[in-house]
């Protein structure tokens, strides 16, 4: 008997997975993103060269064209930069910084924003209006300028970029979570939890939060892409990560001055890597929004 029940059972997770992969474009996006993430994580093992090991760099190999063979006999498929660094290796290492900053800041901003959003919805009254007023103020100001201001105060550095991104992005999560938490908190299960006299923290994080997750996941995915693009922009402007930890944006900035003399590859390929990363995350986010939105369910 039990075997009959188990075999065709459709768990929410399984339904979610099959719906997600119904779109081949989204599946490709996810696959590409996984490949990029793996490349970033295992950079030291798969990159042809360690771009920060000065011993292997040869200034004579500087600004080689894509496909050229360097002095050490190594083929530089994507060319080299002005220091003789292999661009392919530089990009793989740069992806590490970009993804670290993007995912890290999105994650922290999500935690901060979700907590404040839930608190606003649950507490209501003055707490709600104070938090949401700050959110409104923040959202009416362009993110790039806010981040620029914060970084002007904090100075360069990977940690500072993460802080700046968290400070400009938490408001999106707070607004999203508050919206769904306002609906959820009137449901019976929250009332039941309150009647059981559970501690507020437990109601918030064990009962309310899991039910607000779907929109949060969608916003979170999109925000990772935004954070990566914003970090690249800030680094390009010279206010982001320091030269010792170049992200994709900084690699592009380094190639800027050579582009006018026709040496396009120093800027071009990091840009392509950035583009593929952002687009693949957006494709995944788009499909997640369609799958997780109950209003679009047939």
């Amino acid at each position: 008997m039990s075997g009959v029940v188990l075999a065709p059972v459709e768990t929410p997770l399984r339904r979610f997975v099959s719906e997600f992969f119904a779109s081949s474009i989204a599946a490709i996006g996810l696959a590409v993103f996984v490949v990029i993430a793996l490349a970033a994580i295992f950079a030291p093992w798969i990159a042809p060269q360690n771009p920060y090991d000065l011993a292997v760099l040869d200034i004579m190999d500087g600004r080689l064209e894509p496909g050229a063979v360097g002095g050490s006999g190594m083929t530089h498929w994507l060319g080299t930069d002005d220091q003789g660094r292999d661009m392919l290796s530089g990009i793989i290492y740069g992806l590490r910084i970009s993804l670290l900053v993007g995912v890290g800041s999105a994650f922290i901003a999500c935690m901060v924003g979700a907590s404040l959003g839930m608190l606003a919805a649950y507490a209501g009254g003055r707490t709600d209006s104070v938090i949401m007023r700050v959110v409104d103020l923040q959202l009416s100001f362009p993110t790039i300028l806010a981040a620029l201001m914060i970084l002007a105060f904090l100075g360069k550095g990977v940690m500072n970029v993460v802080i700046a991104l968290v400070l400009v992005e938490w408001a999106y999560y707070a607004r999203t979570v508050r919206g769904s938490a306002l609906v959820e908190r009137r449901r019976e299960y929250i009332e039941a939890a309150i009647c059981l006299a559970l501690p507020t923290r437990r109601i918030l994080f064990n009962h309310l939060l899991p039910n607000c997750l779907p929109p949060l996941i969608v916003v979170g995915t999109m925000q990772i892409a935004r954070a990566i693009a914003l970090e690249a922009t800030l680094s390009f402007l010279g206010l982001g990560v320091p030269i010792t930890e170049p992200s994709l944006g900084l690699l592009i900035a380094n190639g800027y001055e050579y582009m006018l003399s026709g040496k396009y590859w120093i800027s071009f390929y990091p840009g392509i890597a950035l583009l593929i990363t952002i687009v693949s995350i957006n494709l995944v986010g788009d499909q997640l929004r369609d799958v997780l939105n109950p209003r679009l369910k047939k």
Binding site: A225, A229, A232, T233, F236, L237, G249, I252, Y256, M259, L260, G262, Y264, S267, F268, G271, L274, L275, I278, V279, N282
Partner: peptide, 29 residues
């Protein structure tokens, strides 16, 4: 239009310079 939303502005700017100013030489950079 999705690309227009997701492409980083500065990189598109660099590509515009590369194509129209450096390669084609039509417009100043």
């Amino acid at each position: 239009s999705i690309l227009g939303f997701s492409l980083p502005t500065f990189w598109v700017g660099l590509m515009l310079i590369m194509v129209f100013a450096v390669q084609l030489g039509w417009l100043p950079s």
